[in-house]
Simulated scan of single mutants.
Amino acid sequence: MQLLSIETKEELVCIADLVNSIDGVGLPGEYFTSGSDYQIANNFTWCSSNYTSIGQNIAWISGEPSMTDFFGVEEDCVSVNLSLGQPKKNALRDVDCSAKKKYICEVPVPTTTKPPCLPYTCEKNQSLLDSDDYINPNASIDGALRISCGKMYYYSNLATTWQAAASACCQLNMRLVVFETVDQRNCFNKIFSIPGYGSNLNSIHLWVGFSDQYQEGVFTWCTSSRNIKITTNSLFFAGGQPDNAGNNENCGMILANTGAALNDGNCMANLRFACEGYVPDCTPICPSTCAKDSEPVIGRGFLWNLDNS
């Protein structure tokens, strides 16, 4: 294996998905990566990769790289800070290479097995996204956006096949909804209970991200990078489901008016769908100074002199 390199936003999101998953308990923290400027000062590269310059798709924490620590010791190695919630683009700092820290290694995983889903195209539509790959507030999208438990959900107005739905989510830099834990399902279900916000969305069938396309009866959350399996006796399924009606139901859906209960459906049926993604950072930016204006101002019909207030 080799030390972690993060060359693309997709790699950063993949790591964030792991940290936020049921398998990510205890993983948030600071880790050594392969980044370094050991050869040329202030020229940081991913040493385990193709010596790609750092900062194109993941950037430095404010004030970093600082080049030296508080005691003047050179900082030629790079660490990444992983936290719960949406992936933070500004996550890198330079550190003393002799410091003792945890580290992340990586290696490609070879596989000869068929994917658990029907194949689908997964490409972002940049005309719908902002510079950080979140949905652009000015973009015209045909559906409803809702927020619950730190995730953003998109409910389509369009009815389409499962494959087309999975591709449509990718265009928004999202994925078909996945329930890896009961808490994730409860967060999604909570939206349905809010009058005027999500109660009307409970009355429609929705495609979500699981399938048993290539191994009958073995259902997998296949739009997740981790391919978590769902047992057929899981409490997530509606009563009597999955039933593979007509021997032709291999794609995952939520049944209407059931509180997010799962069902298997015909992948070629036209249904609306639900996508999920991270919520953009909406932290307010406060002014660095707060100086009074000596000029009189009008406030609620009165003339105020701020110097005498």
Rank of each mutant, 00 (worst) to 15 (best):
G301Q: 10
N90H: 13
E106V: 14
N308D: 07
C122D: 12
V279W: 08
L255C: 08
S49G: 07
D142M: 08
S34N: 02
A144H: 06
N305I: 13
S79H: 13
S309A: 10
D94C: 06
N90R: 15
E30Q: 10
L303G: 02
M152K: 13
K190W: 03
P28A: 04
E106H: 14
N50D: 04
F302G: 00
K114A: 13
N200E: 07
D281P: 10
S66T: 07
A291W: 01
D37Y: 08
S36D: 04
S148D: 02
V95H: 13
D130H: 09
K190L: 03
S294Q: 05
C105A: 12
L18D: 04
I147V: 12
G35H: 11
G240V: 07
I230W: 15
Y103A: 05
N136S: 15
T112V: 08
P115G: 07
V208L: 13
K88H: 11
N227I: 05
Y278G: 02
K124H: 05
F44T: 02
S225C: 04
S193W: 02
V297H: 08
V177C: 10
V25W: 02
L129N: 13
N43C: 01
G150D: 06
C267T: 00
F302K: 07
G217E: 00
G26W: 06
A41M: 03
V13D: 13
C282P: 01
K124G: 02
Q2S: 14
S203V: 06
D132N: 15
G63K: 14
T160A: 07
Y278I: 01
R300S: 11
Y214W: 11
D132P: 12
L18A: 06
I147A: 03
N90V: 00
